[in-house]
Amino acid sequence: MTTIETFEKPRRFYQTMAWVFVAIAFCGFIPTYWLKLMDGSFAGKPILHIHGFMLFAWVLFYALQTNFVANRKMTDHRSWGIAGVSLFTALAISILLAAINTIKQGELTGFANQAASFSIVTFSGIALIAAFIVLAIMNVHRADWHSRLMTLSFVPLLQAPMARPFAVMMTPPGAVGPPPVFVTLPPAIVIDLILVAMLIYDRKVTGRFHPVTLWGSIAIIAVQILCVPISTSPAWIATAKAIAGLAG
């Protein structure tokens, strides 16, 4: 394999993955957001529109960044990366506010504990995403680490849009209130195929599993599983309510 071929493969792989992420983010919300917007039946708070806008902006931004790398426009990639920090910060804030809104709505409708329990999915997800992105920034000069950490950060993020079609198909007629956390496992398994793709890519191109991909995958799967038992614990429910209480 020539040096150029070795150099090009990672660029094209992560570029392809980025556009897969765009497709998941957009298509996942079709049944619960886009279609409801079109027929006027979406009844969510304004923060949900802001959160949706920030989510799509972040995914598209990442696709743009991978395109810069794939086309060897590294100066543009680094310059826009600075703006990316601000964009992700805004996204993280919107995620937290959306989660707090859900807890508050649960309190108003008699599902306070269920809403607090389910919020562990959001809070653990944003913690994972932030950790991966901070590590990616710290390793910006190690391209193999940086690209993998940034890609891993999208697995918890994309679990939400992946869960929407499952919710439409699996929610019983007349069901009210937030669902139990274990219903997040089927869409999590599907979105974890991103991890499988990354591991296969590592094995094929480098002959081994890259430590970032391997340990990052273990961390993501561990959090997905542990969220189920922890979500119903009195300690977590109290913590979630306390976080929501900070908003007044």
Rank of each mutant, 00 (worst) to 15 (best):
120 I>R: 05
57 A>N: 02
88 F>I: 01
78 R>P: 05
80 W>F: 15
43 A>G: 13
134 V>C: 08
56 F>V: 00
114 Q>Y: 08
99 A>T: 05
23 A>D: 00
115 A>S: 08
20 V>C: 13
117 S>G: 02
114 Q>S: 11
63 A>N: 10
94 S>L: 04
122 T>P: 05
73 K>W: 09
14 Y>D: 00
102 T>N: 15
18 A>D: 01
47 I>M: 09
146 H>G: 05
146 H>L: 04
57 A>T: 03
139 N>W: 08
102 T>E: 14
26 F>I: 01
94 S>M: 04
61 F>L: 01
68 F>C: 06
138 M>N: 11
55 L>C: 12
30 I>Y: 04
17 M>Q: 05
75 T>N: 07
14 Y>F: 15
105 Q>G: 14
15 Q>D: 03
140 V>T: 11
89 T>S: 14
67 N>T: 13
116 A>M: 03
124 S>G: 07
145 W>M: 09
111 F>H: 15
45 K>H: 12
119 S>F: 07
43 A>P: 07
107 E>H: 10
115 A>C: 02
100 I>D: 07
140 V>R: 15
96 L>T: 15
118 F>A: 12
77 H>F: 10
22 V>R: 00
123 F>L: 14
142 R>S: 11
98 A>Y: 10
98 A>V: 06
23 A>R: 05
132 F>V: 10
13 F>D: 00
50 I>E: 01
27 C>M: 14
119 S>E: 00
40 G>P: 10
128 L>W: 06
31 P>Q: 00
13 F>E: 00
53 F>G: 06
13 F>G: 06
20 V>L: 15
14 Y>Q: 03
100 I>E: 04
124 S>M: 02
